[in-house]
Amino acid sequence: MRQLDSVAWTGRWKRRPAAEKLCLCLGVMTVSLAVAGPGGQVLIFALMALLTVGLAGVPFWTWLRALLLPAGFLVLGVLTLFVSVGWAEGEAGGGVTLALVPPTDREAAVFVGLRSAACVSALVFLALTTPLPALMTLLRRLGVPRDVADVALLMFRFLWLLFHCLETGRRSQTARLGYASRSRWLRSSALLAAGLLPRALDRGTRMDAGLRARGYDGSLATLSSEERPSLLRLGGIAGGVLVLGGVTAWIG
C-alpha cells in the first residue's frame, strides 16, 4: 500500500489533472467490457502497460507487484469456469459429476480472464499515477455531497496514522513474541485490533480540537492547487478512446 501510494505521489504524471486520468481509465474499461474481443483485450493490456511503465514512468517491478494480487483471483476464477458440475438424478450411486467444459466455453473462460486483465491494467494505471485524494476532490466536483467527500478525505489521512500505529504495534508485539504460536497470534491480533479502536476515536477527537483552533465549524474547505483539466485534452482522450473502440472492434 505504501509503495503504490508513494509512486502515485512522486510519479511523472502526478500533476496531470485527475479528471483526465479517470476519463482515460473509465473509457478504456468501457471499451474492454462492451466492445473488445480477445485480440482487443490483449491490445488494451499492452497499451495500458506501455502507458503506465513507458510514459508515466512507473517502475516496472512496482507495476508487476500491483498486478500480482488480482492475478491470483483471476487464475482461480478462470480455472473454476473450466470445470462443469452436474447432478446425476435419481440413479443409484449417482451424485456430483465433474467434467471439463466444452471448448467453446473454455474459450469464453479465457476471454473473461483476458478482459479482466485488461481492465485491471487500466485500474493499475489510475492507481499508480493518481494520488487518491485527487480523485476524491474530483468526485466532489462531480456532485458527490461535500460531507461524504470530506469524510473520505479525512479517512485517507487517518488511515496513514492508524496504519503507522498498526505497524509499530505489531512490531512491538513481535519483539515480545506475540506471534510465536498460533493461539498467541489470535490473542495478539485481538489486543491490537481492540487497542486501535479507542486510539482511532481519540485521534478523531484530538483532530477536532486541532481544527477548531483554526476556525473549523463543520466545513473542510481547502484550496486545491491542482490544474484544471483542459477541455482540449479531455476531448483528445475521448477521441483516443473512440479510436481504440474502433480498432478493437475491427481486430475482434
Binding site: C165, S172, R176, L177, G178, R184, L191
Partner: peptide
C-alpha cells in the same frame, strides 16, 4: 526493544496484563 512511543506498545487492558504479555509468550 522499547519503542519511543509507549502507546505503540501498550495494548492490554491493565498494566499487569500488559507486562505479563512477554513472559507468557
Amino acid at each position: 526493544l522499547v519503542f519511543q512511543d509507549p502507546d505503540d506498545q501498550l495494548f492490554a487492558p491493565t498494566v499487569f496484563e500488559d507486562v505479563s504479555f512477554g513472559p507468557l509468550n
